Computed example of a mutant assay.
Amino acid sequence: MAVQLRLLGYTVQIDEAVVYGSSLSNFMREVATADRVLMIVDENYVDRADNLPGSGVAIENRWIREAVDQKPESWLSVLFVDNAQCRLPAWMADKRPKGFDFNSRPDLGQFPGIEQLDDLWRWIEGLPADKAHALPPAVLRERAARIERIDVVGDPANYANPTLRGRVTFQYGDHLHYTVGHGEYQFNVAFSEHSGDSVYMYSDKGLKAVGLIPNTSLDTFAFETFLRPARAVTPAVGQKVVLMNQIGALCVMTIEAVQPEINDASHTPAAVTFAYEILVGR
């Protein structure tokens, strides 16, 4: 139950997590300040609360009893399990807290599931019992997973290489830019699809200038002469590009392969493979 609630984004304190032999006092202080308290009540819990005043169950019931009158009616609820008669500790007889029936009835093929979790979630959120506009927890979990998958894809660790030279295959449809190098030798470069063997390469993600290098030019000291303040160039496979960052450092990239996006039964994302070398000391 605690795991399910944590998956929905709640902070859950549970007495089972208290180290064996430790005092329950700190835990019960947390209970008293919680937004919601859910008592998991089976028949054994009721018997211990009513008949064993020195038990942990009885102690936590005293704490809750002292706090409940200063709390809103929605603060305390009860979840019944292995408690077919939905019995409550004696002190709660006049409290009439909201209850959730999580009893299993194998002879009838009845077991608690998503409907009971949905009712529990609605109580936590203070939503009405009427489910005309309900959004079940299963949908929320699916949305949360969808968001996390996108966050993972967008994690900068997935599209950065701090080394000064290397070779990269970059699925540019998933990211705004790729980062090579670090510190004063950092370059952010963005791509988009141009043709079957070429890409747009943009300078507007932190570069100062970009330029195509003619295939005939091999003099690294001449590379900077090809720089232009243009927003983009369109290098094809085999072509080199020179980049300049905001503090004037240079990087040379060679386009080695271009993969256009293919949308059919087996989706192939757009990608570009490039080698790069940052010209340290230039």
Score class of each variant (00 low, 15 high):
residue 140 L to P: 08
residue 143 R to V: 13
residue 274 F to R: 13
residue 162 P to L: 05
residue 102 F to W: 15
residue 119 D to Y: 08
residue 40 I to F: 07
residue 87 R to F: 00
residue 117 L to W: 09
residue 71 K to L: 03
residue 232 A to S: 15
residue 259 Q to C: 01
residue 148 E to D: 12
residue 147 I to E: 06
residue 207 L to G: 13
residue 113 G to E: 04
residue 158 N to F: 11
residue 261 E to K: 13
residue 47 D to L: 11
residue 271 A to F: 01
residue 224 E to L: 14
residue 133 H to Y: 06
residue 107 D to K: 08
residue 253 M to K: 04
residue 227 L to V: 03
residue 5 L to Q: 07
residue 31 V to R: 00
residue 134 A to E: 11
residue 94 D to T: 12
residue 169 T to H: 05
residue 127 L to Q: 15
residue 67 A to F: 05
residue 151 D to E: 15
residue 60 E to Q: 05
residue 63 W to R: 02
residue 226 F to M: 11
residue 71 K to G: 09
residue 151 D to V: 12
residue 66 E to V: 04
residue 113 G to Y: 06
residue 232 A to I: 00
residue 182 H to M: 09
residue 106 P to W: 01
residue 182 H to A: 12
residue 106 P to D: 01
residue 71 K to R: 14
residue 95 K to C: 12
residue 165 R to A: 15
residue 228 R to L: 07
residue 51 N to T: 15
residue 102 F to R: 03
residue 28 M to C: 09
residue 146 R to L: 11
residue 92 M to D: 00
residue 80 F to Y: 11
residue 177 H to K: 11
residue 149 R to E: 10
residue 166 G to M: 04
residue 173 G to V: 11
residue 197 D to G: 07
residue 5 L to E: 06
residue 166 G to R: 02
residue 29 R to M: 09
residue 167 R to W: 08
residue 227 L to I: 03
residue 206 G to K: 01
residue 19 V to K: 10
residue 266 S to D: 14
residue 19 V to S: 14
residue 49 A to Y: 14
residue 52 L to V: 12
residue 57 V to L: 00
residue 151 D to Y: 09
residue 135 L to I: 08
residue 92 M to K: 02
residue 164 L to I: 02
residue 148 E to W: 10
residue 110 Q to M: 07
residue 276 Y to H: 14
residue 244 M to A: 04
residue 213 I to P: 04
residue 58 A to Y: 01
residue 120 L to P: 10
residue 134 A to T: 15
residue 195 S to V: 06
residue 91 W to G: 08
residue 119 D to I: 13
residue 126 G to C: 07
residue 242 V to D: 04
residue 43 E to R: 13
residue 247 I to C: 11
residue 49 A to P: 10
residue 113 G to K: 13
residue 140 L to R: 06
residue 251 C to E: 09
residue 6 R to T: 10
residue 201 M to H: 06
residue 223 F to E: 01
residue 74 S to H: 06
residue 22 S to A: 14
residue 280 V to K: 11
residue 54 G to C: 11
residue 211 G to S: 07
residue 2 A to H: 03
residue 97 P to I: 01
residue 128 P to Y: 01
residue 51 N to C: 02
residue 106 P to S: 00
residue 238 G to Y: 02
residue 230 A to H: 11
residue 14 I to G: 14
residue 259 Q to H: 02
residue 127 L to M: 09
residue 209 A to N: 12
residue 245 N to Q: 12
residue 15 D to K: 15
residue 121 W to G: 12
residue 66 E to N: 04
residue 22 S to R: 09
residue 106 P to K: 00
residue 58 A to I: 01
residue 209 A to H: 10
residue 133 H to I: 13
residue 42 D to M: 05
residue 1 M to E: 13
residue 275 A to R: 10
residue 164 L to D: 02
residue 150 I to Q: 08
residue 62 R to I: 15
residue 159 Y to I: 02
residue 181 G to K: 05
residue 18 V to S: 10
residue 89 P to H: 05
residue 211 G to A: 06
residue 77 S to V: 02
residue 140 L to K: 04
residue 55 S to I: 12
residue 204 D to G: 11
residue 282 R to I: 08
residue 32 A to E: 15
residue 228 R to A: 15
residue 111 F to C: 09
residue 131 K to F: 12
residue 82 D to Q: 13
residue 186 Q to A: 15
residue 123 W to F: 08
residue 266 S to H: 12
residue 279 L to V: 07
residue 235 P to R: 00
residue 170 F to Q: 00
residue 266 S to Q: 15
